[in-house]
């Protein structure tokens, strides 16, 4: 029996497969391992940020600061590397900045009871503004470690390859799934998203959970920023501009309820892949232009929100007659 709460998830997976199959029949050279792996290579940073966003949205919040946080990470990394800091220290430092930044936003949201939307909006302005405080120009990275990570291709049997970033992204997805389903932190996140007052009355650590959720999202954004730095090999204040929207869209298309309480990291994984495969199709099509991606994603967003609404309504009527 198909459990109702899994319907959006199955729709997402089905949709991805459908698009991929259609693409395979339509375009020569589409059906290959490498095309599939390229989806991961090109969207590794999106995937990492989306895992963090999944937790935030499941907890009933939203985080608009992820794109800016990625930019800030590229900027801090690039400028510190330029000054000759060792790569490992830089990576550690930006991760700590990410966690602190996110936790601080979570604390403001919880303790002052301000909507997450507006607090993370301020965070978004702040992070992007700080980029320009460092420099308004692009800083290129020529650090040996960064360039070697960027260029390393891990060969897979069959002649295809992936990048190190993909490994990081997959590790984050695995960690996200584990956290969400096998730890108290994860379950508390779902509880808070399901009903915050109830969670309070059940004696769950609501404040800590909310701060940790935003802290985790900050961590993911910073990690996504590191991967993005590998990808671009530069720091720039305009990097990842508007990416928070792509991330939110990926999470929603992945079946996570924007009202909180229901969502799956696996779904987010496929949500990101759907975005990637749409881009790939559009590039294979040739005659279609890149902006179709946004339109298609907008339409998908609408469809998934309507689907959620429909399921939500059934849930409500089911309850009142009980």
């Amino acid at each position: 029996m198909l459990k109702r709460q899994y319907i959006p998830l199955w729709v997402t997976i089905g949709l991805f497969l459908l698009i991929f199959i259609v693409g395979s029949f339509r375009y020569t050279g589409f059906f290959s391992m490498q095309v599939l792996l390229n989806l991961l290579i090109d969207n590794a940073f999106l995937l990492i940020a989306a895992v963090g966003m999944t937790f935030v949205i499941v907890s009933g919040g939203i985080d608009l600061s992820v794109g800016s946080m990625i930019a800030l990470t590229t900027m801090v990394s690039a400028s510190l590397l330029q000054q000759g800091w060792p790569p490992m220290i830089v990576i550690l430092l930006v991760l700590i900045i990410g966690v602190l930044f996110g936790t601080a936003m979570g604390a403001i949201i919880h303790y002052f009871n301000i909507q997450p939307f507006i607090v993370t909006l301020a965070g978004m302005f702040l992070a992007r503004g700080l980029c320009y405080v460092i420099s308004i120009n692009t800083i290129t990275i020529d650090n040996a470690f960064y360039t070697s990570v960027a260029q390393t291709k891990i060969k897979l049997p069959g002649g295809s390859f992936i990048s190190i970033s993909v490994l990081i992204a997959l590790a984050v997805v695995a960690m996200g799934i584990y956290l969400a389903h096998y730890t108290k932190f994860g379950r508390n996140t779902y509880a808070v998203g399901g009903s915050e007052p109830s969670s309070m009355l059940m004696g769950l650590p609501v404040a800590r959970t909310k701060m940790m959720v935003f802290g985790f999202s900050g961590f993911c954004s910073a990690l996504a920023g590191i991967v993005f730095t590998f990808y671009m090999l530069s720091g720039y204040g305009l990097h990842a501009n508007g990416m928070e929207l792509d991330v939110i869209a990926a999470v929603v298309i992945g079946g996570t309820l924007l009202t909180g309480g229901v969502g799956y990291v696996v779904g987010t994984f496929f949500g990101v892949l759907i975005q990637g495969v749409i881009q790939t199709i559009i590039s294979f099509e040739g005659t279609l232009s890149s902006w179709w991606t946004r339109i298609v994603i907008g339409v998908l967003l609408l469809l998934f929100i309507l689907l959620q609404r429909l399921l939500g309504e059934r849930r409500l009527t089911g309850r009142s007659s009980g």
Partner: peptide, 13 residues
């Protein structure tokens, strides 16, 4: 949010 995401695409279209 839907129109925010799709709108830029429509404008470019």
């Amino acid at each position: 949010l839907i129109l925010m995401v799709a709108g830029r695409g429509i404008a470019q279209l």
